[in-house]
């Protein structure tokens, strides 16, 4: 188990799903974990679930598309905990539809939360990491951002954009000791994929070399690695965690 006891980690969209699993893993690794999510009740519930066994878990209600709000939250975190060592831009949504039927607002909402939200949080956290001359930012992309998917043009564009954003930030921040990487999960057992039919699941299992869907803790393990000093020489990369689906 990684020891991240001296790290302050902020995870957006962490009240449930993969984000929550990541928060749990960081708590186990003794990190100071701060989750940000939209709904106060969900944040409170998640923080309560994380607490216990000496874990250091805190929560903020916040919207990643609200620059002023995020700036305030980050300043408060740095004031209370001294630094932000790792940011995981995990908040994301889907609004799937065939392109021909896709509403402009569904395009915009996905872009706003998945892409603009990551831009805002990255910009605001870098201000602190730049001064500290260290930090690790992990962007939650998706294999859909690498390979595309029918019915997910908005989501694919946002995640593909996030991968390109990751590379630009990695180049811009490198001289300040701040690393930026992206994770591209494949088919992971979450609420987001729970709605898939058995037929679709069987088809995925057929095309995935490891023949099964991944779990949120598979993704969390990679986050732990990218957040810690074990990955000190890795930046600007997109690492797929997909059972081999997109191997090149």
């Amino acid at each position: 188990m990684s020891d991240l006891s001296n790290k302050v980690v902020v995870i957006t969209g962490a009240a449930r799903g993969i984000g929550f699993a990541i928060a749990e893993s960081f708590c186990k690794a003794q990190a100071t974990v701060i989750i940000i999510d939209l709904m106060p009740e969900a944040v409170e519930k998640a923080v309560n679930a994380l607490k216990g066994n000496g874990t250091k878990a805190f929560g903020y209600t916040g919207n990643v598309t609200d620059a002023a709000g995020i700036e305030e939250i980050f300043s408060d975190i740095v004031g209370k905990h001294g630094s932000i060592d790792c940011l995981i831009n995990n908040a994301g949504i889907t609004r799937d539809n065939l392109l021909i039927r896709m509403k402009e607002e569904d395009w915009q909402l996905v872009m706003d939360i998945n892409l603009k939200g990551s831009f805002i949080c990255t910009q605001k956290v870098f201000k602190h990491m730049m001064k500290a001359r260290k930090g690790s930012i992990v962007n939650m992309a998706s294999v859909i951002g690498l390979m595309g998917n029918a019915g997910q043009a908005n989501y694919a564009a946002s995640k593909g954009g996030l991968i390109a954003f990751t590379k630009s930030c990695a180049k811009e921040f490198a001289a300040r000791g701040v690393r930026v990487n992206a994770i591209a999960p494949g088919f992971i057992e979450t609420e987001m994929t729970a709605t898939l039919s058995d037929e679709v699941r069987a088809e995925y299992a057929r095309i995935i070399p490891l023949q099964k869907m991944g779990t949120p803790s598979d993704v969390a393990n990679l986050c732990l690695f990218l957040a810690g000093d074990s990955s000190a020489y890795i930046t600007g990369q997109t690492i797929a965690i997909d059972g081999g689906l997109t191997m090149q």
Partner: peptide, 11 residues
Amino acid sequence: ADSLDTVELVM
């Protein structure tokens, strides 16, 4: 100074 240094100076 590089461009980021000048931003840091201002900050």
